[in-house]
């Protein structure tokens, strides 16, 4: 386990690639005084361009809070967060919305597709908020849906699609604004093993095409397909650069 201990001394961006996510001493505290809960405790983390990385940890370990901070859905109590070189830790709500719209693509466990819209319209939604012209919206949405293999399902409503297909629509929606970071929160949590495989393949392909992916998951099987695993415990990063094999050891130890 000596090798694992070494991994704790992290945060050396050795490769020289630009950092997409750079968390510097990020803390997140909920409540005050007696009821104070420290969700993130001085977390520092660097994710470079082109990485394919999983965030793991037990529930309550702070991985979801970290995810929200990385996704610009929440502001840290203290510390600095540079997303694609921009300090976003103190931006206001409207600026954060703009950052989310342009730089981040979200994929959720529950897909979160709007039931009254077709697959195409769902994928066009982020571009509506980006102010892109409607003709361009359509072209880009079709391209994104083609990329996830749903070019024949453009006009289907979510309830006319299988779970795996719905998640692929959600992935198309996440990449349609060409974000610098694709954030997936338990993307396979609601899928069976076959569709899980399908969705992971798409993530793999997207990563190979150059998209930086960060995925929160508690399934070792899923995390294994990524190239780097960050392990959270009690609001801290305990391991920041686990390989899939090392992760399996840690996962066994944790249970």
């Amino acid at each position: 386990m000596q090798k694992l201990e070494d991994k704790k001394i992290s945060e050396v961006a050795a490769t020289g690639k630009p950092a997409i996510v750079r968390l510097e001493h990020i803390s997140k505290v909920y409540g005050i005084g007696e009821t104070e809960v420290i969700a993130l405790n001085d977390v520092s983390l660097v994710i470079e361009a082109g990485e394919y990385c999983s965030i793991m940890g037990a529930s309550g370990s702070g991985k979801s809070t970290a995810m929200n901070a990385i996704g610009c859905l929440d502001r840290p109590t203290s510390g600095r967060y540079y997303l694609d070189g921009v300090d976003v830790s103190q931006l206001d709500d409207a600026q954060l919305a703009h950052i989310r719209n342009r730089k981040i693509g979200f994929v959720f466990q529950q897909f979160h597709l709007l039931p009254q819209l077709s697959a195409l319209e769902n994928v066009m939604l982020p571009m509506v908020y980006a102010g892109i012209s409607s003709s361009e919206r359509r072209d880009r949405a079709v391209a994104a849906l083609t990329k996830v293999g749903l070019e024949k399902r453009l006009n289907n409503r979510p309830n006319q699609l299988s779970g795996g297909q719905q998640q692929r629509v959600a992935i198309a929606r996440a990449i349609v604004n060409q974000p610098v970071l694709l954030l997936a929160d338990e993307p396979t949590g609601a899928l069976d093993s076959r569709t899980t495989h399908e969705v992971m393949n798409i993530f793999g392909e997207l990563n190979r095409s150059g998209i930086t992916i960060v995925m929160v998951t508690h399934e070792p099987e899923v995390a294994k397909t990524t190239r780097r695993i960050v392990w959270f415990r009690d609001g801290e990063v305990v391991y920041s650069h686990l390989t899939p094999e090392e992760m399996l050891h840690v996962a066994v130890a944790a249970t």
Partner: peptide, 9 residues
Amino acid sequence: LRKALGATQ
């Protein structure tokens, strides 16, 4: 969801 996708208040 809309907010996550970039809708402002």
